[in-house]
């Protein structure tokens, strides 16, 4: 983790009519950091994330993602980031190799790069014999690992993960975090949401959103000290129990 800032927001706000979904959030995320973006259902996480990845225009406030302005340079932002949602987003009726080629093309990689990246990825995931099988035939855990690998295929500065491990078995869930650690080690910033509080412990820093506001932001250790808690689960329950609104 370095001191280079890759996400910087200042009073970032999103309103829907009278409803303030995201209320003046200000924070910074560093290069190579694993940042846990936590909050109860309806706290405003998804809305905030949509602004950060350049697909939803803020109502007020400012933010820079990978050095690009969130209002004016959304196309450059999209080229600098990877995104993986909880809903599986690869093409089920394309093969593993075809999916890699498709997304490589979308990310603007050359044919030569795509060729090289495909082989690297297939070897790394140990899918040599399966590369020409349909993605639909993969178990969920493997789909999620493949989706993550494809989300960082173009070596983005930041990868956004929206509940990447929901419903995955406990061993695969940990293997998935091994991949996250590795990506961060290689300098990719990881910005992740999760409902598994043990996963919050794996983050360098964690923010907790309650009713559109970031009410806590620190390392898991410091948060546990501050709230006199034994686990992140306790910290979360203490902070989120006061939430007034649902989704």
């Amino acid at each position: 983790m370095s001191s280079e800032i890759v996400i910087k927001t200042n009073k970032l706000t999103k309103k829907f009519g009278d409803f303030i979904a995201v209320n003046e959030i200000t924070f910074e995320v560093f290069k190579g950091e694993i940042f846990g973006f936590l909050g109860a259902n309806g706290a405003g996480k998804t809305t905030a994330m949509k602004m950060l990845i350049g697909i939803s225009k803020p109502s007020s406030g400012s933010a820079e993602i990978a050095g690009f302005d969130i209002y004016k340079e959304t196309e450059q932002i999209k080229k600098s980031i990877g995104y993986m949602s909880q809903k599986f987003s690869l093409y089920e009726d394309l093969t593993i190799r075809e999916n890699i080629q498709l997304f490589g093309g979308i990310y603007g990689l050359s044919n030569k790069q795509i060729q090289k990246k495909s082989n690297e990825l297939i070897n790394k995931l140990n899918l040599q014999n399966k590369a020409d099988k349909l993605v639909a035939s993969l178990p969920l855990g493997w789909k999620q690992k493949l989706a993550f690998s494809i989300a960082i295929l173009h070596d983005p500065k930041i990868v956004f993960l929206d509940e990447p491990t929901g419903g995955v078995d406990p061993i695969t869930r940990r293997q998935f975090w091994d991949m996250i650690y590795e990506a961060a080690h290689n300098g990719i910033t990881v910005f992740a949401t999760t409902h598994y509080m043990d996963e919050a412990e794996y983050c360098n820093r964690v923010s907790i959103m309650v009713d559109g506001v970031i009410t806590a932001l620190d390392s898991p250790n410091n948060l546990k000290k501050q709230y006199n808690a034994n686990s992140m689960d306790e910290v979360f329950l203490t902070l989120a129990r006061g939430a007034k609104r649902g989704e």
Partner: peptide, 18 residues
């Protein structure tokens, strides 16, 4: 329970998956 589950389960290897 999660420790027990992991001890009992076999991690799916790529050979088995398809």
């Amino acid at each position: 329970i999660e420790d027990c589950f992991m001890q009992l389960m076999k991690s799916p290897s790529p050979k088995e998956i398809i």
